[in-house]
Every structure is written in structure tokens, then in C-alpha cells.
Simulated scan of single mutants.
Amino acid sequence: MINPLNVQLYTVRDHLSADRDGTLRRIAGIGYRAVEPFDPMNDPEGMRRLCDELGLAIPGTHAYALLGEETAPVFEAIATLGAELAIIPGGIPHEDFATPDGLARTSERLLALAEQGREYGVRIGYHNHWWEIEPVIDGRHALEHLDPGVFLEVDTYWAHVGGADVPALLRRLGDRVLALHVKDGPGVKDQPHTAVGSGALPVPEILSARPGALRIVELDSCDGDVFEALAASHAYLSALEVR
């Protein structure tokens, strides 16, 4: 594989809350070799220690808390995890993606975080939902207008829901995209996701459009047992890599 297959831990948030160690052991047992936390402030020392024991890398983490006033403790937690990528997964007003002025404010805010992150060896990225895709400004989706000084983690499912031709979007964005959230399902809002490869998205074409990006499986909600869906997703994506 080009990169180890990764799981966004929001997928198993309830299981983590009940039994973090057992949940991570199950993920490693399926064959995943990396995870993406969604809250770096939740015992970063313990998380890093356990992931090291299980052979799970932490290339990046979501870091909603960076939008708060005190960023230094968040960056310190990210550094403790060993993550080099910190992704803002929302928290910016939806309307700021609907106008050029709003996009300029958003870029300025993210670039300020990127400057802070350099002191910790951390790069700042942004993760989309549908509301950063639906507005089209000057012929491009709003997400495309963010300053290229901030990398992108493209959620391929929500980009599809927002109306993008996802492979074409990824080709346009090119190496600005360092990571992909790979998920599948009916391709509409408010319905549960399914194992990757069993839904409506053209997963092979999407992955081929940005082959060097991290591949992170995420199921916001799951139609069936989540660990079975993670195992089926791993098997499907691993088979694609073999071919």
C-alpha cells in the first residue's frame, strides 16, 4: 500500500468512550495501521503509548479545539501524539463559504493557525462537509477558493453530496489534498453510511484521482455493525491496492 490504511476514530466514538484500549486493539486486529483521532486533548500521552504498542501510526488528528482562544495546549497535545497534520473539521460559519469576503476571512483565520503550527512542526488543514462544496463562486466550489497555504483533507462522500464531481475536483486540487476521507453509502444526507465499496460512490475513480493522499476510512453513522463495516472496507481497499 502507498500509505497505511487509516481509521478516523469518530467512526467508533461510542466504543472508544466505553473501552478505548479494546477498541483500538480491534482496529489493529482488522489490519489497519494508522488512526486519526478527533480530540487530541483526550489523554494524548496514553493514546500515543497504546498506539505505539499496537503498531498504529497517527499521521494526523482533527483539532476542532484550535478554533478556541488557547491554542498552545492543543498544539502541545498534537505534538505529543506525534501527528504532523492537524485538521480543522468545521466550526467556521457556513455562510463564510458562500461569499468571497467570507472565504477570505476563513483563509486568514486558517493561515494564522498554520503560522502557529509551524512552531510545533504541525501543518494545518481543513476538512469539508457539503456546505463548503454547494456554493459555486466563479465556476469553482467554495472549498477550492481557500488559500493553498492550508492543505485539504477532502471528505469524498460529503463532496459528492454537495454536488461535486469528486474525481474532477481532486484532479483540480492536486497536491493541495494530503488526505482523503473515504466513505460510502447512498450518497445523500441523513442516511447511514455503509462499508466502503458497497454504496453509490465511484471509489476506485476517486482514489485514482489523488493516489498519493492518505486514505482514512470514516463512517459517520453505520448501517449495521461498525467493526464488520470497517473490516469489509479494509478488505475492499486492500484489494484495490493489490490491483
Rank of each mutant, 00 (worst) to 15 (best):
94 H>V: 14
97 F>A: 02
98 A>D: 09
99 T>H: 05
100 P>R: 05
101 D>A: 14
103 L>P: 00
103 L>F: 01
104 A>M: 08
104 A>N: 08
108 E>C: 06
109 R>P: 01
110 L>A: 11
112 A>P: 13
114 A>F: 04
116 Q>T: 09
117 G>Q: 09
120 Y>L: 11
121 G>M: 08
122 V>L: 07
124 I>R: 01
124 I>C: 02
125 G>H: 12
125 G>N: 10
125 G>R: 09
126 Y>E: 07
128 N>R: 08
130 W>A: 15
134 E>G: 12
137 I>L: 15
137 I>Y: 08
139 G>S: 07
139 G>M: 11
140 R>Y: 14
140 R>N: 14
141 H>R: 15
141 H>L: 13
141 H>V: 13
142 A>R: 08
142 A>I: 09
143 L>W: 02
145 H>L: 03
146 L>Y: 04
149 G>P: 01
152 L>G: 04
153 E>Y: 11
153 E>Q: 15
153 E>S: 11
154 V>W: 10
154 V>H: 06
156 T>A: 01
158 W>C: 05
160 H>A: 13
160 H>D: 09
163 G>N: 05
163 G>D: 03
165 D>G: 06
167 P>A: 13
167 P>L: 14
170 L>H: 00
171 R>Y: 02
172 R>W: 13
173 L>W: 03
174 G>W: 13
174 G>V: 12
175 D>C: 07
176 R>E: 06
179 A>T: 14
180 L>K: 01
180 L>A: 00
181 H>F: 13
183 K>I: 08
183 K>R: 15
184 D>K: 03
185 G>F: 09
186 P>I: 01
187 G>I: 01
188 V>M: 06
189 K>W: 10
190 D>P: 03
191 Q>M: 06
192 P>L: 02
193 H>I: 05
194 T>N: 08
195 A>M: 04
195 A>E: 13
196 V>R: 06
197 G>L: 09
199 G>T: 03
199 G>W: 01
201 L>K: 10
202 P>N: 07
202 P>Y: 00
210 R>K: 15
210 R>L: 15
210 R>V: 15
211 P>V: 02
212 G>I: 08
212 G>N: 12
212 G>F: 07
212 G>C: 06
213 A>C: 10
214 L>F: 14
217 V>A: 06
220 D>A: 01
221 S>E: 10
222 C>P: 05
222 C>I: 07
224 G>R: 02
226 V>R: 04
229 A>L: 05
231 A>I: 10
232 A>T: 10
233 S>W: 08
234 H>V: 00
235 A>M: 00
236 Y>T: 02
237 L>F: 06
237 L>M: 09
237 L>P: 00
